[in-house]
Amino acid sequence: MSGMVEKRGAAHWFTHLGMILGVVIIGFPIWLAFVASTVSQPEIVQPPMPVWPGDQLVENYAKALLSGVNVPVARMLFNSGVMALGIALGKISISLLSAFAIVYFRFPGRLVFFWLIFITLMLPVEVRIVPTYEVAARLGLLNSYPGLILPLIASATATFLFRQFFMTVPDELAEAARVDGARPMRFFIDILMPMSRTNMAALFVILFIYGWNQYLWPLLITTDPEMNTIVMGIRQMFPSGDDIADWPVIMATAILAMLPPVIVVITMQKLFIRGLVESEK
């Protein structure tokens, strides 16, 4: 359908031109990183570096993945994967259970629990970083996957979301389940969980990106390079002092670090947008 508000002629092309300019400017840093990951070190250290990809792609990525600087990047990718999946799946599981309890039961102290959980909304780990680190250290969680995952799932955003969703589920369904003599957990597994599939998927996309992109927490609790995640590990690849950084390998690592979340966003765009809008409501 064509509107009548200035969409023809010059204005039309100006609009496309503006959009293309925006896309190019926003994509430029990534293009440059990609080019840097395909050329050799001498081509970078004598500026200006080339603007088109070179022929060192395989060499640079192989070197990054298999040997890296402190630790092979393949290892860091694996650690990031475990962390991101752990955070996404862990948070979804505990939140589904507690939202079910809060919405579908009346029990003493329900409101207290409700508020205890909801006070945690929006309070990022960055704010209570030193004491949280001390707790993790005392529990022996430094350099471990539970240490990377657990402190980051201690918030109620997902619980809040599932609660909102459960409130919109028609009462007749629970009523029917009760009349049929179904136990609460049957209702939860057979009816509520399948109905929440889309919400779970949308939340998964958001939480996966959130987990993958964590920086400060892994920086603190992984002192062993073997446990570094890729996002925090890039910084560790820069030499201290005056040595020249291995730019092609570092830039290959940067590209590898952004690939999984970018693929998730692009292939699951609908779920991603839905998740964004809902988790901010």
Binding site: A33, V231, R235, A254, M258, P261
Partner: peptide, 16 residues
């Protein structure tokens, strides 16, 4: 074409 930089971690954006 415009939304995917959202997925790039702030620390990686810093490096770029």
């Amino acid at each position: 074409l415009l939304i995917w930089p959202y997925a790039v971690a702030p620390a990686v954006a810093g490096v770029l």
